[in-house]
Design a protein around this nucleic acid. Sequence first.
DNA 1: GTCTATAGATCGATAGAC
DNA 2: GTCTATCGATCTATAGAC
Lengths: 218, 218
Amino acid sequence: MLKRVLDEARHASRLRETSPEADTRERILEAGSDLFQRRGFNGFSYKHIAVLLGLRHAAIHYHFRNKSDLGLALLQRYRRIFLEWAEELESRVDDEWDRLQAYFGLYVDYQRSGSLICPSGVVSNDFDSLPEAMQEEARQLLRDRWNWLTRTLDNGRSAGKLNFPGRAAERALVIGAAMQGALQIDRVTSNNRMEQIIAQLELEMRRDVSDIDNGRSS
Amino acid sequence: MLKRVLDEARHASRLRETSPEADTRERILEAGSDLFQRRGFNGFSYKHIAVLLGLRHAAIHYHFRNKSDLGLALLQRYRRIFLEWAEELESRVDDEWDRLQAYFGLYVDYQRSGSLICPSGVVSNDFDSLPEAMQEEARQLLRDRWNWLTRTLDNGRSAGKLNFPGRAAERALVIGAAMQGALQIDRVTSNNRMEQIIAQLELEMRRDVSDIDNGRSS
DNA sequence: GTCTATAGATCGATAGAC
DNA sequence: GTCTATCGATCTATAGAC
């Protein structure tokens, strides 16, 4: 069982590309991140990380006293990476349609990294068994994504770049839920279902741009 | 930790309503089903079930030699229940819109039973760590749902009961993924996000029916 | 069918040497 | 910072009494 996990994890090329000079704390977070999205918070141990990094599990405890600390650091890291991604994207890309494309791209990347589940999906699934400190951070993680999607959809419709019926906040919920589920479904059917889902979501938001005037009056 | 799990599980009123006469095998499956959707396949043990049923864990092994057998039986049971649900529904309800409402109702029931995750969501998340026999059954579980949704959407659009752009099979993927994600998101935000998602999905499928009828001129 | 008792593995975590 | 060694808890599973 352990061997199987490690075989899977080694497929994540990101790990191999980690420079040997990177300090141990960061390497732990990278390995932990991969295991977290592959097996869930309760599905990996200090030993899994230790083997991947060529250390003993006691060494991990030096950097993260207990697993709750490690999990919290992982969630904070996910939040930071997402917010930095959004900031960089918005400084570079103006069109909300293109921004949404970039958002979908995040999920395609997860899929291509060996059918990883998105961080929101992991915390949603394991929520009841997470330490309380992680639960609060998990709520914020989902809120960050929701806020970004809502804002992007709202601005995009106002600018005529995309369209959808109803309120942006609720369409954002549907898109977030669908992408989260898509990544999970894709790992079972392994038939590029996620790209079909992305294509369908795009189709739904593009087709009504032409009747933006008469579509919303009912 | 164990205590916390059991406190949570006892909230599932279905368990309390189980008649004492029900044979042990079926009671194991009922308790296992609740734990499965609450904690994932790796998140519960024979001991959890045993405590809930007032037995010793060795007794569970008499009915299910190992956990893989138990898990397989759970998945087969989920598939049977869904297919029976669909058959009963279709013998009673003709309108595809109403059938879709009933489908959404399944998820509302899960949510009200203490934010359970749907079976498809659990197997998707735990897929990599499932025994091989369970993986094949998991694929079928998702396929059953997808087939049913595709058929219902296709027939419903042909009959003018609902509308959506693109192909039924792909819209079915979006709806399945969105409902699966909705249940997960709901358990984190605990703010009835799922009902908002259902309302949005309904809005998206209803709004264009009038466009077709009115030739988009109103 | 259910029990007691036990096996071996793995888990998260700590103490103390180097 | 990383190591060896060890702890107590929990896990899946089996043997054998009743």
